[in-house]
């Protein structure tokens, strides 16, 4: 068992990626705001911790510090949107979704206010325990009508998502990988499309459908499986809503053993969306859900926690092998 100590809140994600990029969200927002003068930024006393400080330093007149008041953060963002601005509001997943839920649902989603909620510390990307780990945010956000929900996997994708959602007119919830974010996808070849899943690797023995930072581990898993002669496809679903049903169904029609991998509880998130989709279509598959079980996670060091709650690559490999051998 891996052991360690709880790292501070500015610690980087312990991804296996060799390469990282600093503050991809902050950089992408500044780049988008250079071209789009209607973009404004807000945060609830977490500017430095969500990379919003990069925007605040470049565009101080277009930045609003709201203090530790997440309901107000989302409410003010909705008001700015109604005045014709494109607000990006940042805080942590836990505070945005648990504390400001009604303000997202009614203040933003009901009337499709053009608000972008940027939510840090998704799933197990902090060792701080239940208060800070946003383990059920995708389930909460996915159930709100009109809301686009995105869980990007790396710095490459974040850099592409930001200009896309700035141009999209409507409310968006995006999970944020902040600080030194891993680079999993090749910026030269990867193209993010809103609402589209991407087949990053093909294979006929099994398929891993992954979202967020689990896609890096899904790709590692497929590599390890290939070394054992098992050919696994990897479908990366960064847009949880609207969900790319066609891509999932196309895969499920030809690959019957599917592992879902998400940095989230296994209820109501990616696994739920995949299960709903294949059930609605009447397609029979074998499904193994990798994700956080139905529990709050303890605090601790991230490698230890990710292993304990089954989010590490080894566990995805194990799940895929069991499925293939079954």
């Amino acid at each position: 068992m891996r052991t360690g100590v709880t790292a501070n809140l500015l610690a980087t994600d312990p991804s296996s990626a060799a390469k990282t990029v600093a503050a991809p969200f902050g950089q992408a927002l500044v780049a988008a705001a250079e071209r789009e003068p209607r973009i404004v930024g807000l945060t609830a006393d977490l500017g430095k911790y969500t990379d919003m400080h990069v925007f605040a330093q470049r565009f101080p007149q277009r930045f609003f510090q709201i203090g530790m008041a997440e309901q107000n953060l989302v409410g003010i963002a909705a008001g700015l949107a109604r005045a014709g601005w494109i607000p990006f509001a940042s805080t942590y997943c836990v505070f945005a979704t648990r504390r400001a839920y009604d303000f997202i649902a009614i203040g933003c989603a009901l009337g499709q206010a053009n608000v972008k909620i940027i939510a840090g510390l998704p799933g197990l990307t902090t060792g701080y325990g239940g208060t800070h780990q946003g383990i059920e945010d995708l389930a909460l956000m996915r159930s709100i009508p009109n809301l686009v929900v995105i869980d990007p996997c790396d710095a490459t994708e974040i850099a592409q998502v930001i200009p896309m959602i700035a141009a999209y007119r409507g409310p968006v919830y995006m999970r944020l990988l902040r600080g030194q974010a891993p680079v999993t996808l090749d910026p030269a070849s990867y193209r993010f499309e809103l609402g589209k899943a991407k087949l990053l690797r093909d294979g006929a023995d099994a398929a891993i459908i992954s979202a967020g930072l689990m896609t890096g581990r899904a790709l590692d898993t497929a590599q390890q499986l290939a070394e054992d002669g098992i050919h696994a496809a990897v479908l990366h679903v960064s847009t949880l809503k609207p969900f790319d049903r066609e891509a999932v169904l196309a895969l499920a029609r030809r690959v019957k053993k599917i592992v879902t991998a998400e940095n989230h509880v296994v209820t109501g998130g990616l696994a739920g969306a995949v299960a709903d989709t294949v059930a609605d279509a009447g397609i029979s598959i074998r499904l193994k859900r990798v994700g956080i079980p139905d529990c709050f996670c303890e605090s601790g060091s991230l490698p230890c926690l990710q292993q304990r709650y089954g989010l590490d690559t080894e566990n995805i490999v194990l799940a895929a092998k069991r499925l293939v051998e079954s």
Binding site: Q71, A78, R82
Partner: peptide, 10 residues
Amino acid sequence: LGQAVGMALG
């Protein structure tokens, strides 16, 4: 009031 503050800022 929060949305009104946002509108006023905008």
